[in-house]
């Protein structure tokens, strides 16, 4: 089975999703990501979904879950590089992912995580959608 690599960059975990996310793979990712956070004591998780072309409600919910679980483990989650079509789909599905911080690209995402860890930014939006 495919596996999505999880890279350690400083005290952040970087996950770049470059294949189609089927449900099994997504659940495996969630599992190994949590294990990795605990093992490494990472303070931030960055999910790069710029190559992801399709999402469904399951993946949308899973992203939300990963963010919530990581927060319990005291790690901030930032989703970066979402495609316009994916954003529109998620909004139409009613998933505004209000618990997740987002950034335009990996560069800005790393800067955002840095600010969150330094306590300059909220780890999640105060807005509830």
């Amino acid at each position: 089975m495919d596996q999505i690599p999880i890279l350690m960059v400083g005290d952040c975990l970087l996950v770049s999703i470059q294949v189609d996310m089927h449900d099994q793979l997504a659940l495996a990712l969630q599992d190994s990501l949590m294990t990795k956070i605990v093992e490494t004591g990472a303070r931030g998780v960055m999910l790069d979904i710029s190559s992801l072309q399709f999402v469904d409600s399951f993946i949308g919910r899973l992203l939300n879950n990963i963010a919530s679980m990581a927060r319990v483990l005291d790690a901030a989650t930032v989703v970066v590089g979402m495609q316009p079509a994916v954003a529109i789909t998620l909004v139409e599905l009613g998933l505004t992912l209000s618990g997740i911080r987002t950034a335009l690209n990996v560069d800005k995402g790393l800067a955002l995580i840095r600010r969150i860890i330094d306590g300059e930014e909220q780890a999640f939006d105060r807005r509830e959608g």
């Binding site: 989703v79 954003a87 998620l90 909004v91 939006d125 959608g129």
Partner: peptide, 13 residues
């Protein structure tokens, strides 16, 4: 309007 705002936020803006 809110839909548009949410979509832009998901993109990171």
């Amino acid at each position: 309007l809110l839909k548009t705002v949410s979509a832009a936020r998901l993109m990171g803006a």
